[in-house]
């Protein structure tokens, strides 16, 4: 079995770019998952946290964290956003491994992500910290 990327990737390893454009169907699913009577009216725009979550899902897959035997804890999250994103608007995400250390057999990794629009303008950033336990080769 190939070792998951988290066991070999070094700091500054880059991920992506990923197309994290959110189509209408996924926006509807988000509203079903999160929405309620208190929710703001998004109209044809998205909650930016949804774009972050979409990028995170791809990152987790790229890091090999769905590999058998691994257990991943999402420990921390930072997000900043400059403007709203429209449903279907093209957004690209590029990740960079900001930290990756092993303590007591657990991997502690932080991935910083930059989100850009079709003009290449950065519209948001995020930073995700995860702890991975299990049989991670290192």
């Amino acid at each position: 079995m190939t070792a998951p990327l988290i066991s070999t990737a070094v700091v500054c390893h880059e991920f992506g770019p990923y197309d994290v454009t959110i189509p209408a169907g996924r926006a509807i699913a988000y509203a079903e998952a999160v929405g309620g009577s208190e929710s703001p009216a998004y109209g044809d725009t998205l909650a930016p946290i949804m774009v972050v979550a979409a990028a995170l899902a791809v990152l987790i897959e790229d890091l090999g964290l769905y590999s058998g035997g691994l257990q991943t804890i999402h420990a921390g999250q930072e997000v900043s956003w400059a403007r709203q994103v429209r449903v279907g608007e093209r957004v690209e995400a590029v990740g960079r491994l900001a930290a990756n250390s092993v303590r007591r057999g657990n991997h502690f990794a932080t991935v910083a992500v930059s989100y850009t629009d079709s003009d290449g303008v950065e519209i948001g950033t995020s930073s995700t910290t995860i702890i991975v336990s299990g049989e991670v080769s290192s």
């Binding site: 996924r26 699913a29 079903e32 998952a33 999160v34 979550a53 979409a54 769905y66």
Partner: peptide, 14 residues
Amino acid sequence: DRVDAYAEASGDHN
């Protein structure tokens, strides 16, 4: 049901 919908929305099918 909300968790299932969130998996669809985010693409996180862990």
